[in-house]
Simulated scan of single mutants.
Amino acid sequence: MGGALAAGVLATTALYGGSPAGADPVALPNTASEAVQRMIDLSHQSEQLNQQALDAQSDLDAKLVIQRDADAKLAATTDAVNRARDEVRKYQPVIDRTAIAAYQGARTNRLFAVLVSDSPQQLLDQMSTLDVLAAQTSAQLDQYKTATDSADAAEAVARRADDEARAAADKADSVRADLERKRSDLGGAIAQVVQAWGALSTKDKSALAGSPFPPGFDRDTLLQGLVPGSGTSALAAGLTRVGDPYVWGATGPNQFDCSGLVQWAFKQVGKDVPRTSSAQATYGTPVAKEDLQPGDVVFFYSDISHVGIYAGNGLMLHASTFGVPVAVAPMSSTPYHSARRY
Score class of each variant (00 low, 15 high):
S206A: 13
A339D: 01
S201H: 01
R166H: 10
Q104K: 15
N109W: 02
A161L: 15
E34Y: 15
D296N: 06
Y342M: 13
Q51N: 04
V328D: 00
T282K: 06
D55N: 03
P286E: 03
A153Y: 09
A279H: 05
A139D: 14
A169F: 14
G8N: 05
D71E: 05
A101G: 09
L226E: 12
D59M: 15
A327M: 04
N30W: 05
R160I: 07
P294N: 00
Q121H: 03
G2C: 14
G270S: 04
T148W: 04
G187Q: 00
S211Y: 06
V242Q: 11
G295C: 15
L124I: 10
Y246E: 06
D204M: 04
D61A: 03
P274W: 01
G243H: 04
K73E: 12
V132N: 03
D185G: 10
R85S: 13
K205I: 05
G22I: 06
S332G: 00
D296E: 03
G249E: 00
S119Y: 06
R341Y: 09
A23D: 10
V116S: 04
A154F: 09
Q263G: 12
P25S: 09
S305T: 13
L235M: 01
V175I: 07
D185I: 12
A4I: 11
P294E: 00
A207V: 07
I95L: 07
A209H: 03
G312Q: 08
D59K: 05
D162R: 07
Q143H: 08
G270P: 01
H337K: 06
D257Q: 00
R85H: 14
S320C: 14
A106K: 10
A196M: 11
T221F: 10
A158K: 09
A196C: 10
